[in-house]
């Protein structure tokens, strides 16, 4: 059965990495169920459409006009619902980022069907029962979840898989205008950006540099940002740092913040409390920099430096810069 992916590129024409991952994942499901991988994209540019094909899309329906109402989750879900009907779709895959999760869950409600949220891999498909793996208990355990509804909504946790790009793959591309009239009920009055660092969304970032209370105050975040910049990383923080408004609260990672699983997580001046670890233990490699050699974080780390962040971090930034220069 065919699988539908929603890829919103209305921001700048660029499809996000998490949507390519969802496309690749959907193509694997489509392959096993003998269906097609269909992507509904919003204002994707030519380069993104080609990459969607390389990620596994067989058909791309690209909406070329602005639909301001789509910022209302329920409108986005209704547009998706329409294409599940016209394209004969059984399964829908969205990235489990902020927007994807909201739209997917609303769509599951509209379809009155089951949802497998934040999965990390596909275990098996047996008739209409699919089994996925997902993280539970804030990364302390993994679970296999089966879903057996006729129609399925699935969200894929970002950074869970490595896309095998197939540059030979060609998709049927349909550029369309979506002329149905949608009236938003949730109306956006203004948008405020609070990121100070780069533009990498934290859940998608492959490298994250994170600071804790050990940095003493917001005025000291320069060393964190410099290191993040040298690495092309996103920045994060521990809960007390966000609570004290040293950093915006969307940078707060952990059990009661966001859960991330980058390739590299560098924790600076963070003690490694169980609730913090819960949100970052899925990271592939963890580096800890802390003055206290007894800090619990070292037990969860791959590499550790016992030392003062104010001395170590600038040195590390310089070493990274040198390394990057040598790679060019």
């Amino acid at each position: 059965m065919s699988v539908l992916v929603f890829a919103d590129a209305s921001n700048n024409g660029k499809v996000k990495k998490a949507s390519f991952e969802a496309t690749y994942f959907a193509s694997q499901i489509a392959q096993q169920t003998g269906g097609k991988c269909v992507v509904l994209s919003l204002k994707a540019d030519d380069d993104s459409k080609q990459k969607l094909a390389h990620a596994g899309a067989q058909k791309i329906i690209n909406i070329t006009n602005d639909i301001p109402a789509i910022s209302d989750v329920s409108v986005a879900a209704k547009i998706l619902l329409k294409y599940t009907q016209t394209e004969g779709i059984k399964d829908v895959v969205l990235p489990n980022d902020i927007q994807g999760k909201a739209v997917a869950s609303y769509l599951a409600g509209l379809l009155n069907t089951g949802i497998a949220p934040a999965v990390t891999s596909l275990v098996s498909i047996n008739g209409s029962t699919y089994v996925f793996k997902r993280n539970v208990f804030s990364g302390k355990a993994y679970a296999q979840i089966s879903i057996s509804s006729d129609k399925k909504v699935i969200t894929l946790l970002p950074n869970s898989l490595q896309i095998q790009w197939n540059t030979q793959n060609i998709a049927e591309i349909k550029d369309i205008t979506e002329n149905d009239n949608y009236t938003p009920r949730v109306i956006v009055k203004s948008v405020e950006k609070t990121t100070t660092g780069g533009n990498i969304p934290l859940p998608e970032a492959e490298i994250v540099v994170s600071g804790g209370r050990g940095l003493k105050g917001p005025e000291n975040w320069g060393i964190i940002e410099d290191l993040a910049k040298a690495l092309g990383a996103a920045t994060a923080c521990s809960r007390p740092v966000a609570d004290a408004h040293w950093r915006p609260h969307h940078e707060h990672v952990g059990q009661t913040g966001i859960a991330i699983r980058p390739n590299l997580y560098i924790a600076i001046g963070i003690s490694g409390a169980i609730q913090h670890l819960a949100g970052v233990s899925g990271s592939k490699t963890i580096v800890v920099i802390n003055t206290d050699k007894e800090a619990p974080f070292f037990k969860a780390a791959d590499y550790g430096i016992v030392g003062d962040a104010f001395e170590v971090v600038p040195k590390l930034t310089e070493a990274i810069k040198k390394f990057k220069a040598s790679q060019q």
Binding site: N112, T113, G114, I115, A116, V131, N135, V136, G139, K140, A141, Y142, A143, Q144, I145, S146, I147, S148, S149, S281, G282, I286, V287, V288, F298, K299, A300, A301, D302, Y303, G304, I305, V306, G307, D308, E311, V312, K315, L316, A319, I320, F323
Partner: peptide, 30 residues
Amino acid sequence: NITTKYEQFELAPGRSACKFIDPNNVEELV
């Protein structure tokens, strides 16, 4: 409707021991 079921759980594996690096040799970490 009941559509999903947790079939199996497993605890996340712990990490192997941390490798400590001399703070004066950050190049080693890189």
